[in-house]
């Protein structure tokens, strides 16, 4: 498992190197490959090549989750923009605690980051299996408390 992970990290690093460099001569490509191998070797010595640093297992589930998340982001960004340009600024800031049903740290990070990425809600602190969320409006807080996003992240975590 660890060997498969290391090889996959080498390939992603090399692809990233190719994209950034833009040189496709054999000599430079060999150097790029060597440097990615060296980086992964150092990372193995530091013991940071694992599921958390390179979450391959989420790959399939995430593909179904991201489009939904993008639609959600656009909708809530539109709502927040309307609130900002409204002359009376009709906001009702709320703090609430949301349960998270994810098991792994990676799933919890995905959930907390999705909450922060959606304008209108920000994850402020993580306590045990709850997230302290600051919401701009009460409606946004109720939306989040409905648990739709939580269910989707858990499903995306479970599908892997």
């Amino acid at each position: 498992m660890l060997r498969f992970h290391s090889i996959s990290v080498v390939f992603s690093l090399f692809a990233f190197w190719l994209l950034l460099s833009g040189y496709f001569t054999p000599f430079l490509m060999t150097l790029g490959l060597l440097s990615s191998v060296a980086v992964v070797w150092f990372a193995r010595r530091m013991d940071v090549v694992d599921q958390e640093g390179h979450p391959l297992h989420l790959g399939r589930g995430v593909m179904g989750y991201w489009p939904w998340l993008i639609v959600e982001i656009v909708k809530s960004a539109w709502t927040v923009s309307k609130l900002i340009v409204h002359p009376h600024l009709p906001i009702s800031p709320t703090m609430l605690r949301v349960k998270m049903s994810q098991q792994s740290p990676v799933g919890q990070v995905v959930y907390a980051n999705s909450i922060t990425l959606t304008p209108g809600t920000i994850s402020v602190a993580i306590e045990e299996d709850e997230i302290l969320v600051h919401a701009l409006t009460r409606a946004g807080a109720d939306d989040l408390a409905g648990g739709d996003m939580d269910r989707r992240v858990t499903a995306c975590e479970a599908r892997s």
Binding site: A77, V80, L89
Partner: peptide, 22 residues
């Protein structure tokens, strides 16, 4: 405008995330 107009630190963060996303 939201970052300038919103009251309080946390509400300003919501406005800033509009810049970062949309």
């Amino acid at each position: 405008i939201g970052v300038l107009r919103m009251p309080g630190f946390y509400t300003r963060m919501h406005a800033a995330s509009v810049i970062d996303t949309l």
